[in-house]
Design a protein around this nucleic acid. Structure first.
Length: 221
DNA sequence: TGCCAGGCCGGGT
DNA sequence: ACCCGGCATGGC
């Protein structure tokens, strides 16, 4: 009974974990990007890639005044690839960006509000239909560009929840996302901060470079 | 110097 | 249903 309850009721722990992280690290002010389009571009560019490299790529686009739907779609694939080269996987990501930009232009008439206005599941499916947009990229776009309450799961989330026993092992992306969304009120501001805090936690390293630091906000709890 | 970073896809078992 | 290789740059 006690065990069943503990396994079936992670909600209070997930909320308390959030409160601890927020108390320890403070607000993270995500996403680091000013416009919805910039956030979308960044979401693709940051796939398996350090954010510092993404910033270089985005700065290239900004420097050319290219950070608009029309300007980006006017580039040919090789030009785009060279501009985003610092972000790595640049040929691949140029195609992925093009797919996504085409989706916005052709299916939504270039109006992102038309995308955000859909029911969450439909907006998510629309993004996932774009080749190169997987679950994390889709949820990042929905949450950080669209302001919709779609929880973002990433590698840090898996590690943190596993390490601290906050979710049963073996949950996949969908399972973990569903757990968060069932455990927390559906508030974009909360999801925004929580994911950012989990990334912050993941980036924390003790001085020896090991993944678990003394003084971790979730340590021994 | 090697390893890693806010994934995703396609092909093979 | 998993498992794996490919994709690429820059920082530590």
């Amino acid at each position: 009974m006690t065990q069943a309850l503990a396994a079936a009721a992670p909600a209070p722990r997930l909320l308390e974990a959030y409160q601890r992280l927020l108390a320890a690290f403070g607000p993270q002010h995500w996403w680091p990007g000013q416009t919805p389009l910039e956030v979308m571009v960044g979401a693709v560019l940051t796939q398996n890639t350090n954010w510092g490299n993404v910033e270089r790529a985005i700065n290239n686009l900004k420097a050319g005044n290219l950070l608009s739907l029309a300007a980006l779609r006017a580039l040919d694939l090789d030009q785009l690839a060279q501009l985003i080269r610092p972000a790595g996987y640049y040929n691949l990501k140029a195609r992925r960006l093009r797919n996504l930009l085409d989706l916005v232009a052709l299916r939504f008439g270039g109006d992102l509000e038309a995308l955000w206005s859909l029911p969450l599941d439909q907006a998510r499916q629309a993004l996932l239909a774009s080749k190169g947009v997987g679950p994390e990229t889709a949820d990042s776009i929905l949450l950080y560009a669209g302001g919709l309450p779609s929880f973002v799961v990433d590698a840090y989330t898996f590690r943190a929840l596993g390490r601290h026993g906050l979710a049963e092992p073996g949950l996949d992306y969908h399972g973990l996302r569903a757990l968060f969304m069932a455990s927390l009120p559906a508030q974009a501001a909360l999801y925004n901060e929580y994911h950012a805090l989990l990334v912050r936690l993941g980036k924390e390293r003790c001085k020896k470079g090991r993944p678990l630091c003394a003084g971790c906000p979730l340590e021994g709890w």
